[in-house]
Simulated scan of single mutants.
Amino acid sequence: MNWRIDPTNILLDENIVAHVSDFGISKLLGEGEDSLTQTMTMATIGYMAPEYGSEGIVSAKCDVYSYGVLLMETFTRKRPTDEMFTGEMSLRRWVKESLPHGLTEVVDANLVREEQAFSAKMDCILSIMDLAMDCCMESPDMRINMTDAAEKLKKIKFMPNGSLEKWLYSHNYFLDILERLNVMIDVGSALEYLHHGHSSAPIIHCDLKPSNILLDENMVAHVSDFGISKLLGEGEDFVPQTMTMATIGYMAPEYG
């Protein structure tokens, strides 16, 4: 665990690739350990997880909390120690209270001053701030883990048009007949590849639904979230599942 995730410890190389630095107070958890207790607080104020500041409890979720603060700072250009954050008001609370309709009041104005693609930019930043909130939950047990956080950011970067669910159920977006047909052709082609074209062992997605269909900048649909997918053995047509994890309403009757 790094413990000191803040802008001064994020170094950028000649290609603007970020590297985490300063492991002077980092800790290595022993095998099987999820956390440890620290008697002296050495992390940076403003980036410190609440359980570390109050109880000295250190875990990987402390870095997740700091990462969430860093996400907010990066896109608002406001330090968590800014003089405006006093009393009950913090960077986290300031951003949270702006979501979703007041986001333009907190985001760095330099990011959205051009009118071109304004709506798409704000959607992107809203998704990032939602992720920051997931990272900065008060309870460490409620925080997202870094594997899922990194995966969400990759989806935001490479799938700027979001999910099919957004386009079907948001009042601000609309797909015409041809666009919807193209999405379903893309999804069908993806499933055909998983079932028959990937290898001799078919992959069963197990959780197909609109929120798992992501649209790239060209509105090409991609199937995502293979967290509960199954790999069939050679010659197998199905595998029995003892625990039902698929989404109600999209689940085949024989699975449920």
Rank of each mutant, 00 (worst) to 15 (best):
G46T: 08
S90V: 09
L111C: 08
M84R: 12
K61R: 14
I57T: 14
K61Y: 07
E97A: 13
M48I: 15
R79N: 12
L71W: 00
S98R: 07
T74S: 11
E105M: 12
A109N: 09
F75T: 09
S66E: 05
P80T: 02
F75H: 05
C62R: 02
L71T: 00
G102W: 05
G87F: 05
T76L: 00
N110W: 06
L99G: 08
G53I: 10
K61M: 13
A117L: 13
V58L: 15
F85V: 11
K121W: 07
Y67R: 03
H101E: 15
Y47A: 02
H101V: 10
V107H: 03
K61S: 09
R77T: 14
G87A: 13
C62D: 06
T81D: 11
Y65F: 15
E105I: 07
A109Q: 14
K78C: 09
E105G: 10
T86C: 11
M122G: 06
V107K: 01
W94D: 04
R93D: 09
G102E: 10
M122E: 05
P80G: 01
A49Q: 06
G68T: 01
V95H: 01
M122T: 06
T76R: 02
E88F: 05
S66K: 02
L70G: 00
Y67H: 01
E88N: 15
A117R: 14
E97C: 12
E105R: 12
K61H: 08
E114L: 13
D108K: 01
V112H: 03
E88C: 10
E97M: 12
G46N: 04
R77H: 11
G102T: 08
A117S: 15
D82W: 00
S119A: 11
H101A: 14
L103D: 05
R113P: 03
M89W: 07
L103G: 04
L111W: 03
F118R: 12
P80L: 01
F75W: 10
R79S: 15
E51A: 03
G46E: 06
F75Q: 01
A49H: 03
M48A: 03
T76S: 06
T81R: 03
E115G: 13
L111A: 09
T74R: 01
T76G: 05
D63M: 06
I57D: 02
L111S: 10
S98T: 08
S119G: 09
P50R: 04
